[in-house]
Each structure stands twice: as structure tokens, then as C-alpha cells.
Simulated assay, not measured.
Amino acid sequence: MRIYMQTKPVAAESPRYYEIVLQQDLLGGWTLYREWGQQGGRTSSKREIYLERDDAIAAFTQARDAQVKRGFLVVFSQGLEAPHVR
């Protein structure tokens, strides 16, 4: 599963982005990758490992919802249903 989100661009600044990727590893575990930053600028990333699929999906959903609440808009999603935005 993968989601790419962006903020709306402000006059002179590049938009900020947040990408979340969930992948199953070869041993049956799940890895949640997060990358964020300003396009064309410095970025940060984080990796979390989960043993259970349900825990990994819950973390993925929580990360997505937190960024939507912060004003990020979903630009691209792959491998999951459309995000539920309130």
C-alpha cells in the first residue's frame, strides 16, 4: 500500500509532501516507511516494523489520518481503498 500527500503550494514555497508505504517482508512481517519534507529540499524518513498485518494497517491508517488532519491532500494512492476524509 502506498499514499502520497501534499500541501497546497504557497506563493514562493514548494509544497510539503508526506509519503507512507506499507510492504510485507520476506519473513511475513510488515514494514511501514514514512518520508516527508519539502519538495526539492531536505527530507526525513522513518521505518517501523510490525509482526502482525492488522497492527501494520492500523499504523498506516493512523499516520494517513494524522496528516489529513494537518491539511495534507491525497495526490496518489495505490493498493487500498480511497481514504476516508472527514
Score class of each variant (00 low, 15 high):
residue 1 M to A: 09
residue 3 I to W: 04
residue 4 Y to N: 01
residue 8 K to H: 12
residue 9 P to C: 07
residue 10 V to W: 10
residue 10 V to G: 03
residue 10 V to T: 09
residue 11 A to G: 05
residue 11 A to R: 13
residue 12 A to N: 09
residue 14 S to P: 04
residue 15 P to S: 13
residue 15 P to K: 07
residue 15 P to A: 11
residue 16 R to C: 07
residue 16 R to H: 13
residue 17 Y to N: 01
residue 18 Y to M: 06
residue 18 Y to S: 03
residue 20 I to M: 05
residue 21 V to A: 02
residue 21 V to S: 05
residue 21 V to Q: 03
residue 22 L to E: 01
residue 23 Q to L: 08
residue 25 D to W: 07
residue 26 L to P: 04
residue 26 L to W: 08
residue 28 G to A: 01
residue 28 G to R: 05
residue 28 G to K: 06
residue 29 G to K: 12
residue 33 Y to T: 02
residue 34 R to I: 00
residue 34 R to E: 15
residue 34 R to Q: 14
residue 36 W to A: 06
residue 36 W to K: 08
residue 36 W to L: 07
residue 37 G to M: 05
residue 38 Q to L: 12
residue 39 Q to V: 10
residue 39 Q to S: 08
residue 39 Q to C: 02
residue 40 G to L: 06
residue 41 G to N: 12
residue 41 G to E: 15
residue 41 G to S: 13
residue 42 R to Y: 01
residue 42 R to I: 05
residue 44 S to F: 11
residue 45 S to E: 14
residue 45 S to D: 12
residue 46 K to F: 00
residue 46 K to A: 07
residue 47 R to F: 00
residue 49 I to L: 14
residue 49 I to W: 03
residue 51 L to W: 07
residue 51 L to S: 14
residue 51 L to K: 11
residue 53 R to K: 15
residue 53 R to C: 07
residue 54 D to W: 08
residue 54 D to L: 10
residue 54 D to I: 03
residue 56 A to W: 01
residue 57 I to W: 14
residue 57 I to M: 08
residue 58 A to Q: 08
residue 60 F to L: 13
residue 61 T to F: 06
residue 61 T to V: 11
residue 62 Q to P: 03
residue 64 R to G: 07
residue 64 R to N: 04
residue 65 D to K: 08
residue 65 D to R: 09
residue 66 A to P: 00
residue 67 Q to E: 12
residue 68 V to G: 01
residue 71 G to V: 11
residue 71 G to M: 07
residue 73 L to M: 13
residue 73 L to D: 10
residue 73 L to P: 00
residue 74 V to R: 05
residue 76 F to M: 13
residue 76 F to H: 15
residue 77 S to M: 11
residue 77 S to A: 11
residue 78 Q to G: 02
residue 78 Q to I: 01
residue 78 Q to E: 15
residue 79 G to Q: 09
residue 79 G to A: 11
residue 79 G to W: 10
residue 79 G to S: 08
residue 81 E to P: 06
residue 81 E to Y: 08
residue 81 E to L: 11
residue 82 A to C: 03
residue 83 P to H: 02
residue 84 H to P: 01
residue 85 V to E: 14
